Simulated scan of single mutants.
Amino acid sequence: MSIRSGQAPFPVVRMVVLTVLLTNVVWAVALPLRLTRPPSAVGWVVLVLLAAASGVALALVLRAAVTPATSPATCGRLVAAQTVAALALWPVTFAWAEPGREPWAWVAASVIGAAPLVLRWPAAGLVAVGMLAAVAAGAGVWGQPVARNLVLTLVAAAALMLMGQVVVWLLRLLVAADAARATEAELAVSQERLRLAQEMHDLLGQRLGVIGLKAELAGELVEAAPARCRAETTEIQRLAGETLRDVRTAVHGLGTVDLDVQLRTARLVLASAGVEPVVNVEPLALPPAASQLVAAVVREAVTNVLRHSEARHVWIDLTAAGGSVRLAVVNDEPRSAPGRAGIGLAGLAERCAQVGAVLRYGPAGDRFEVRVELPAT
């Protein structure tokens, strides 16, 4: 299968892989020309044009195999075009083949070997069956050995398929590794934003609240102060209150992370770390506040798995039942300790309690569980 996710990193590596694959175009075009004997100059022109069309179609299929943005529909059309170009060569190569040679077997092999690079195996299998049937039919019609044509086709196709799968697989690994690094960086940035938000709320918010209280007390104690003093005191109260509201608004903005994005990030990060994620999420229409809270619990639970355990499996289940939403994040290694006070699971438990949700976490036999239950509305 071709690469599908993201933009291809390492453009030099991608070009090297494509160059290796394009070497197959040489023999897919040159051998049919070498092993065919047209009866006239016009026949040579026809043969060269058809062989060139077949080679171009093969090159486009191989290019799609290393191009992430190529859609499955486009890949299907490219393979169909290559198949049509190959079938156009079918009568002339069989009819004009040199004695004891099988030129069209190489053309059919190029189609069979390239198809699995861009199509799923069932579809590629159908292409292979069709091309092998054409090989057998051509050999039978023009009096060539059927078995020899089929064997040569299968051997050449297997060689192209094996080489293509290996180099494309290596490129796919590089793309997956790059995507995992980007996801881990995104998770680290999200964690840092939440840490700063929590610290801002705990420190700056509390201090501004104290400032407002002290200013209010000062206004009550100053009985004989001039009017300007009282006006300044009132201004201090107003500024402190506005600043506190602004800080809380900023903290809320820093803490908003979409649940769907967080689930995709968790799946990618766990997989890249060698942990098998099993995600079962019912389609729920959660309010923004509930979605952000569930996303925060998923993020913290996954972070703890990566930092504090050697888990091999993580189960993430999000369900709705009995008027409540329930999230469970369970891993198969019980040493997933909570994070630091104030920004870990303990801090999330306090945050959940403020909105009527209940967060529980801890070892459960040979597993570590993080569970939260919150009202559906």
Rank of each mutant, 00 (worst) to 15 (best):
78 L>W: 01
212 G>C: 03
56 V>F: 02
185 A>I: 08
290 A>L: 15
183 T>F: 11
135 V>G: 07
126 L>Q: 15
328 A>H: 09
265 T>P: 04
249 T>F: 12
105 A>T: 01
15 M>K: 10
221 L>F: 10
110 S>L: 04
217 L>H: 15
227 A>Q: 13
248 R>A: 10
122 P>S: 04
290 A>E: 12
206 Q>P: 09
157 A>N: 03
8 A>N: 08
69 A>F: 04
139 A>N: 07
140 G>A: 14
174 L>M: 14
284 L>A: 06
24 N>L: 06
252 H>R: 15
6 G>P: 02
20 V>K: 04
330 V>A: 14
276 E>K: 13
56 V>G: 00
142 W>V: 11
105 A>N: 01
301 A>H: 03
376 A>N: 07
19 T>E: 08
278 V>P: 07
365 G>Q: 07
328 A>Q: 14
90 W>E: 11
43 G>E: 05
151 V>F: 08
257 V>K: 12
49 L>S: 12
233 T>Y: 00
152 L>Q: 08
197 A>H: 06
299 R>S: 15
220 E>L: 14
126 L>G: 14
227 A>E: 12
55 G>P: 03
280 N>Q: 15
229 C>G: 12
122 P>H: 06
229 C>I: 04
335 R>C: 06
68 P>K: 05
43 G>V: 03
245 R>K: 15
144 Q>S: 11
181 R>T: 13
327 L>W: 02
374 L>H: 02
308 H>Y: 05
357 A>I: 08
2 S>N: 09
49 L>V: 13
48 V>R: 08
292 Q>K: 14
334 P>W: 09
277 P>K: 09
149 N>C: 11
344 G>D: 00
125 G>W: 00
293 L>Q: 08
80 A>N: 03
309 S>L: 02
107 V>L: 02
104 W>P: 05
107 V>H: 05
305 V>E: 00
173 L>F: 04
65 A>W: 02
20 V>I: 14
358 V>L: 11
165 Q>P: 06
114 A>F: 02
228 R>I: 11
155 V>Y: 00
79 V>Y: 04
58 L>S: 00
215 A>N: 07
275 V>M: 07
322 G>W: 01
30 A>G: 08
207 R>M: 11
117 L>W: 01
256 T>V: 13
241 G>W: 03
201 H>W: 02
95 A>V: 02
335 R>S: 15
172 R>Q: 04
289 A>S: 15
